[in-house]
């Protein structure tokens, strides 16, 4: 019995896909494995141990990393929150504000940080703060992150909003809700998965950003990525792999959450 002649199937494409996933995951898996290496050298394998995780929290570099981690998380939380609020409002205007002349321009503006190469944004932001005489420090990093995070928050939010028919809030207004109430009581709850998803993505993007941060941070100010970069410049050490694995774990957990949340559909 010959197999069905299926034109959706191309011989070899499955193999390429598995290869692709292998490439994507191999480095991450290997770094994770080696972060549990007992050996102080990164080349030898001396059995499983948690010593480098302990080292991250108590070792000679621990103060530096704790300081950097605190900065990173504070900036990520604030930047993601602000960016998500801005993106939610902008999505409402762009998708629920009728047709208007600046609509396409507004959308272009919101996605601008995705189109400009990151290094250019970094240079421009640095020059900007320099030109207006703004001292570089945590605040400059935060401002730059807010701008850069907006499109990442915007995309899931707008995708979500496009899936919600306008009849919902129209029905609410038909039942005597004001526009504001219709937004708060109907649109916002329906959009929650998109908003949560947008927040989490913005959070990761901020937490992970290196290039812009590296440009606009003041002397002595560090975030986790800049601290890691500085350490890596002196060679990859096992404690770096432990930090990387933790950061990797946070990203994976957040993305998974974001994915699960965005798949929940309140309208079904």
């Amino acid at each position: 019995m010959a197999a069905k002649y299926d034109l959706r199937v191309f011989p070899g494409f499955r193999a390429v896909t598995l290869f692709c996933l292998a490439i994507l995951y191999a480095p991450l898996v290997i770094v994770t494995i080696y972060s549990f290496n007992a050996s102080p050298s990164i080349t030898n394998w001396d059995g499983v141990s948690l010593r480098w995780y302990v080292d991250v929290f108590t070792g000679p570099d621990s103060e530096k990393f704790k300081y950097a981690a605190r900065n990173s998380f504070i900036i990520a939380i604030i930047a993601a929150t602000v960016a998500t609020c801005i993106a939610t409002l902008a999505a409402t205007a762009i998708l629920r504000g009728g047709r208007f002349r600046l609509r396409t321009v507004s959308f272009g503006l919101v996605s601008l940080p995705l189109m400009v190469p990151e290094i250019v944004t970094a240079v421009a932001t640095l020059i900007f703060f320099n030109a207006i005489g703004f001292d570089r420090g945590l605040l400059t990093i935060l401002l730059a992150h807010i701008a850069f995070c907006i499109p990442f928050a915007y995309l899931p939010i707008s995708a979500r909003m496009q899936g919600i028919e306008a009849t919902y809030e129209q029905a609410a207004m038909d039942l005597y809700a004001t526009r504001t109430l219709a937004f708060r009581r109907v649109l916002l709850p329906l959009m929650t998965p998109g908003i949560v998803s947008g927040f989490l993505l913005a959070f990761i993007v901020s937490l992970d950003d290196f290039i812009i941060t590296n440009f606009v941070k003041g002397a002595g100010v560090e975030t986790l990525p800049t601290a890691i970069f500085g350490a890596v410049k002196q060679g990859i050490k096992p404690n770096i792999m432990a930090i990387s694995t933790m950061l990797l774990g946070i990203s994976v957990v957040m993305v998974t959450l974001s994915w699960l949340v965005s798949r929940r559909d309140a309208t079904k």
Partner: peptide, 23 residues
């Protein structure tokens, strides 16, 4: 046309079995 296989039985085109021929 050849897009589905025949679970059992056979199809002939002018007396020739075409099961083995792709579309």
């Amino acid at each position: 046309a050849g897009f589905e296989d025949v679970t059992e039985g056979a199809i002939f085109l002018f007396g020739e079995e075409i099961e083995k021929l792709p579309p």
